[in-house]
Amino acid sequence: DETGKFLVLALYDYQEKSPREVTMKKGDILTLLNSTNKDWWKVEVNGRQGFVPAAYVKFL
């Protein structure tokens, strides 16, 4: 149950560059965990948590 969690859509592919980031593919649906930083949002994708560039995702 994803109640209270926001979902975001990956607009572009992103390859993680550090262990704190996660890789996503364009079209992936991600669970948004934290968006307090304007540049990097914490998400969960494929069972992994990490950061992606905020400009690469949008709210569903």
Rank of each mutant, 00 (worst) to 15 (best):
L7H: 10
L30A: 09
L32I: 07
R48W: 03
M24G: 00
D28I: 03
K38T: 09
K26T: 07
I29N: 03
K26V: 08
G27Q: 02
N37Y: 08
K38M: 09
S35T: 10
E16T: 08
V8F: 07
V57S: 00
L9E: 11
E44L: 08
Q49F: 08
E21V: 05
T31Q: 10
W41Y: 11
S35P: 07
L7Y: 15
L7I: 10
Y14F: 08
N37S: 09
Y12C: 12
L9W: 07
T31A: 09
W40S: 03
T3M: 12
N34W: 07
E44P: 00
K26P: 03
V43Y: 00
Y14K: 01
Q15F: 14
D1T: 13
S35L: 08
V57P: 00
N34T: 07
Y12I: 10
A55D: 09
I29W: 05
K5R: 14
E2C: 13
K25D: 04
K26Y: 04
K25F: 11
K58S: 12
L60W: 11
F59I: 15
V57G: 01
V22S: 02
G50W: 02
D13R: 02
T3P: 13
K26E: 08
G4I: 14
N37V: 05
Q15W: 11
F59T: 09
R20S: 14
G4E: 13
G47P: 01
G27L: 03
A55M: 11
F6A: 12
Y14P: 01
V8M: 10
R20D: 14
D39K: 13
L7A: 06
V57Y: 01
K25H: 10
S35M: 14
P53W: 03
L32D: 00
Q15M: 13
E2T: 14
A10F: 02
F59K: 11
T23M: 04
W41T: 04
D13H: 05
L32F: 05
V43P: 00
E16I: 05
W41K: 02
V57E: 00
M24F: 10
G47A: 06
N34G: 07
Q49R: 12
V57I: 10
F59W: 10
L7W: 12
V8L: 15
K38C: 10
I29Y: 06
K25P: 00
V22I: 15
K5S: 11
V57F: 05
V45K: 13
F51D: 04
T3F: 12
V22E: 00
Y56W: 07
Y12D: 08
R48C: 05
V22N: 04
E16K: 15
K26I: 06
S18D: 13
P19V: 09
Q15C: 10
T31V: 15
L60V: 12
S35R: 11
D39G: 09
S35V: 09
A10C: 10
L30M: 15
L60A: 08
T36I: 09
R20Q: 14
A54G: 04
S35C: 14
P53S: 02
L7C: 09
R20V: 12
T3D: 13
N34Y: 07
V43N: 00
K5C: 11
V43E: 00
D13T: 05
V22H: 03
V45H: 15
L32M: 05
T23N: 06
V45M: 13
K5L: 12
T3V: 13
R20P: 05
F6C: 15
L11S: 04
Y12L: 10
V43T: 01
K42D: 04
Y56A: 11
K26S: 07
R20G: 15
F6Q: 15
F59A: 10
E21S: 06
F6S: 11
A55W: 07
L11Y: 04
Q49H: 08
L7T: 08
V52M: 02
D1E: 13
P19W: 08
V22Q: 03
R48S: 06
L33P: 00
E21P: 04
V43R: 00
N34I: 07
G27P: 00
R20N: 14
V45A: 12
D1M: 13
G47H: 06
K42V: 13
N46A: 10
E2M: 13
V8P: 01
N34K: 07
A10G: 03
S35G: 10
T31M: 12
E16D: 04
K42Y: 15
K17D: 06
K38D: 11
